[in-house]
Design a protein around this nucleic acid. Structure first.
Lengths: 175, 175
DNA sequence: TATTGTTATACTCTATAACTATA
DNA sequence: TATAGTTATAGAGTATAACAATA
């Protein structure tokens, strides 16, 4: 990992600003990562001066899911989000720390907890949904309604196919 | 952040498996994140038994960019990837540790380093490009060629619009 | 002064493995 | 035994802030 003096054949840096994305810009996986990061950055910036400043896209999504499925358990939420239990636990712990989510022990199954939004969580969700439309519009402004629908559809097809493939691969060589 | 005994109105967990993604599944930002994560997982699983096991999508992308723009500087690479200098520095340091990338001091500008792939880096890139097509195909299997082209186009439009918006927002209230 | 790179530090999101409590 | 949740730990990828070296 040392740097080397410059051999003649390497005295060839590109002139400023001439480097290009090239092939990588044709890779859907790369474009997805880039678009997703752009979305995250835009959300954080556009909510910066509001009452939900600092609430991440993942956290906002969890508030939406908990409101739509009040009382769901942590394991069910993990399945919905396609993450491991320990990951979900950490995410929920953070939302509890923030005072947005409350858990209630299940009388029917004393292992499980039912998740609910607190009053403050509900207020955060109201702000979230109020800001979501403008956020979407800013990012999708150059797409027609038809393109937007097509995009969502294609993304769902990728997710569905990918999760089947990933399941298969994970089982193929378990260690 | 304490748990509470169950008040009557909260004794209402959903029956197993009845929770739904609902509104969140209509949010492009959420679908992008999910699709991107699926891509990453698929890449890691499908390269697991190859010579590039452990090479992440971000690292693979960097190899592609360095090969296409030999001698580019770290700052140029950071611009291409739209990340901060310190982020790029850490990514390059890791690739150097792995023996895939080598830096050469620029004679013209002694502040800068020209980035190049090592022999091992070139071998890793060959494997990467060899495996990329199957990886793409597995994830895009349910999309027609036209849908794939439309998808890439839409993602580029989102990235372009988003980066303009993000720039504007970042300048709007600098602190 | 401006640019390139570096360091220190911190945070989000993610995972695996080993564990406890309950079913 | 199986499931729900927890803890310890690790790692990728990202950022901000302060700094050194060079232009």
């Amino acid at each position: 990992m040392t740097d080397t003096p410059v051999p003649a054949e390497h005295d060839d840096a590109l002139p400023q600003g001439e480097a290009e994305i090239g092939e990588l810009g044709r890779q859907t996986g790369y474009l997805l990562r880039r678009a997703s990061m752009t979305y995250t950055t835009h959300w954080m910036l556009s909510t910066r001066a509001t009452s939900i400043a600092g609430l991440t896209p993942v956290q906002a999504g969890m508030l939406i899911l908990i409101e739509e499925n009040p009382g769901l358990t942590q394991i069910e939420l993990a399945r919905l989000l396609n993450v491991e239990g320990s990951t979900l636990w950490a995410l929920v712990a953070k939302l509890r720390e923030m005072g947005l989510v409350q858990r209630y022990r299940q009388p029917g199954d004393r292992r499980a907890f039912a998740l609910h939004l607190t009053k403050q969580g509900k207020r955060a969700l109201v702000q979230t949904t109020a800001l979501l439309a403008d956020h979407q519009e800013a990012l999708l402004q150059r797409l027609t309604p038809d393109q937007r629908a097509q995009l969502n559809q294609s993304l769902k097809l990728i997710i569905a196919a990918g999760e089947v493939e990933n399941q298969r691969l994970a089982e193929m060589a378990p260690q």
